[in-house]
Every structure is written in C-alpha cells, then in structure tokens.
Amino acid sequence: MKKIIFLLEWTSIIGLLACALWVFLKLPIEASQGFPQKIMYLHVPSVITTYLAFFVVFVFSIAYLWKRELMFDQIAKASAEVGLVFCALVLITGAIWGQTTWGTYWVWDARLTTTLLLFLIFMGYFLLRMSVNDRDKEARLASVLGIIGFLDIPIIHKSVEWWRTLHQPSTLFKVDSGEAKPSMPSELLYPLLATIFVMLAFYLFLLLLRFQTEKRIDTLNQLLAETQD
C-alpha cells in the first residue's frame, strides 16, 4: 500500500508538471479569449475530479449503509475531504477565469449557484461528522448526507441546459446529432484530456493517503477508548 501511494504520488506530480509545460510552452493561444484560456486546464480537470470524488462518496456511503463496514465509511470520508478541496479550487479558478472573460468574479446564475451549494453541502457534511460522538451513528448520518449531496452533481452538470446561465454550455461533453463532439480543435483538446487523466491519478493518490490517515485515526480512537475502560 505504501509503495503504491508513493508511486502514484510521484508519477502524478511529474505528470502534472509535464502537462503544465505542454500547456504553457507548446499550445497555441486560443483565438477569442487569448492567454487566460489556459485557466481551463486547471478548472475543467478540477471539475471532473470533484465529480469523481463525490461519486466515490456516493458509492461508499451506499455501501456503508448496506454492509456497515467501517472501511467503507473511512473511504467515503477521505474522498469527501479531497473532493471538498477540489470543489473549492473549482470555485476559485472559475472566479478568476470569470473575471478575465465575463468581467465578473461571481454571478448568481444556475451553474455557479448549484456549484456553491455542493461546496456548502459538503462543508455541512464535516460539521455533521464532528457533532456526532458515536462512530456508527456518525457514519450513518454522514452517508445519508453524502448520498443527497452527490445528487446535486447531475443538476450542476445539466444546469447550463435547463436554465439560462452566464456560464457557457459544456465543451467537452458536447453532443452534436447524437455524436460526442467536443467543440475544440485537437491541439487544445488533447492536453486537456491528458491533464484530466493525470489529475484523476493525483486524486487517487490523495484519496489513498487520506484513507490511510483515517484508518490510523480510528485505530487510535479505539486504543484510547480501551485505555479509558
């Protein structure tokens, strides 16, 4: 396990650096936005990673409610924390990008509001965990909130289609007459796909590291409880 974490850590960090070099040194400047379009290579992969992280929370929350295996809750908690960090970065990089292109850091349109809601739900998730003392009760309540919180993600993703928003529709998941057609030339698209892939590996590293920590914390708490008996 330690070896896998170490390997994932360094391959993903080197991979991220390589992607950044590719983006900054090799890529042509995008025609309408110019240089600030490079924020996309941070923003979009962070979005996908946030989606995945909370999907993992969703899956392992269901698994916990079903099997009552402590490990499942540890994974869900670890993924939620990593997801929350990525979600915050989505909001921050998005705000910066918005300022350069739209001319505002923030608007209350559907895409931005539902994304902020996701962040607040998972902030609440950790407050909930901290407020419950019983380990099993904590896990059960958190699982329910984790499942509900994940349901915001399809809403976020579809918000640009369902409502009128300032945020543009999806570039990557664009469908043209039933066919997936990202509206981007391949020289801009490939580095984006590569960055997404590497960032997911980076997420996996963070998840495993955080999971390891969570396991040890639970062991420590059990030992402490035994000494108090």
């Binding site: 110019g34 240089f35 990089t93 300022q99």
Partner: peptide, 15 residues
C-alpha cells in the same frame, strides 16, 4: 500578446 497573464499565474499559484 499575453494579456491577462496575471490571472493565469494567480490561478495556478493558488492551486
């Protein structure tokens, strides 16, 4: 040519 570079730098540094 590199208009808006400060925004890009800030975004990457924060990340």
């Amino acid at each position: 040519m590199l208009i808006g570079i400060e925004y890009v730098v800030v975004a990457y540094v924060i990340w």
